[in-house]
Design a protein around this nucleic acid. Structure first.
Length: 231
RNA sequence: ACCGCGAUGCAUGACUC
């Protein structure tokens, strides 16, 4: 990737008499995050402190995301917990990034803990918070919790989008719950959400893996019709 | 003063790293 080049340019700036600011660091940290270079991102936060360039909430969120992409949940949580110590108030994005770190490493319980912690800190979990936690539950094989959370968010007035449904469908699919997966797919239009290719593909896979070729074929036909309607 | 530049969530596969 271009993360190494980005760090190189960051190093070049002072030599040209330019002082990198929080945004300069943020751009580099984002590149590190996309490449999963968590250690570099964490180092950059420390470097900012050392050089007196105060990291902001976005810098921390980017570093937390880098830890998530690098599958480092402990380091992600360390950064989240460090924020108040340096005078920063974590926002929903910082939490969501930490949730993703837990999700990618199978820590679904920790992901739920973070979701529950948000309101206690005056934050309102958003559609991404819930979808990320649903993904975490799905990866942990907790399909019932995933479905519960989809219901919970709606009960709290958070409008699920296509990704929220897809993550829940996937949670069911991975545990062989083909009927539940199809039920969720059927609920989508009622909730004002149009199933997309991912929605159908996931439900089709669930049916096929569980020996329901008829159901799978019906969904495939619908999927093709829906795709034609898009074009 | 105003504006512009950096952060978060889905299936399968491929590719890049």
């Amino acid at each position: 990737g271009r993360w190494a080049e980005a760090i190189g340019l960051l190093r070049e700036m002072p030599r040209q008499g330019v002082t990198p600011n929080a945004i300069s660091y943020g751009i580099v940290m984002s590149a590190c995050a996309k490449a999963g270079r968590w250690a570099e991102a964490v180092d950059l936060v420390a470097e900012m402190h050392a050089r007196g360039t105060v990291p902001d909430v976005i810098n921390y969120s980017a570093a937390i995301d880098a830890c998530a992409q690098g599958s480092r949940w402990k380091e992600a949580l360390d950064l989240l917990r460090e924020m108040p110590e340096v005078g920063l108030t974590p926002n929903v994005i910082a939490y969501n990034s930490a949730v993703d770190a837990c999700s990618k490493t199978g820590r679904w319980e920790m992901a739920i803990d973070l979701l529950r912690e948000m309101p206690k800190k005056g934050l309102s979990p958003d559609v991404i918070s819930y979808s990320a936690v649903i993904t975490a539950c799905g990866r942990g094989g907790e399909w019932e919790k995933a479905v519960d959370l989809l219901g919970e968010m709606q009960a709290r007035g958070i409008v699920p989008d296509v990704i929220s449904f897809n993550t829940a469908i996937n949670a069911c699919a991975h545990k062989g719950q083909w009927q539940e997966a199809v039920d969720l797919l059927r609920e989508m239009p009622t909730a004002g959400v149009s199933p997309n290719l991912v929605s159908y593909s996931t439900a089709v896979a669930a049916c096929e893996e569980e020996g329901r070729p008829k159901e799978a074929a019906v969904l495939r036909r619908e999927m093709m019709r829906a795709q034609e309607a898009v074009s």
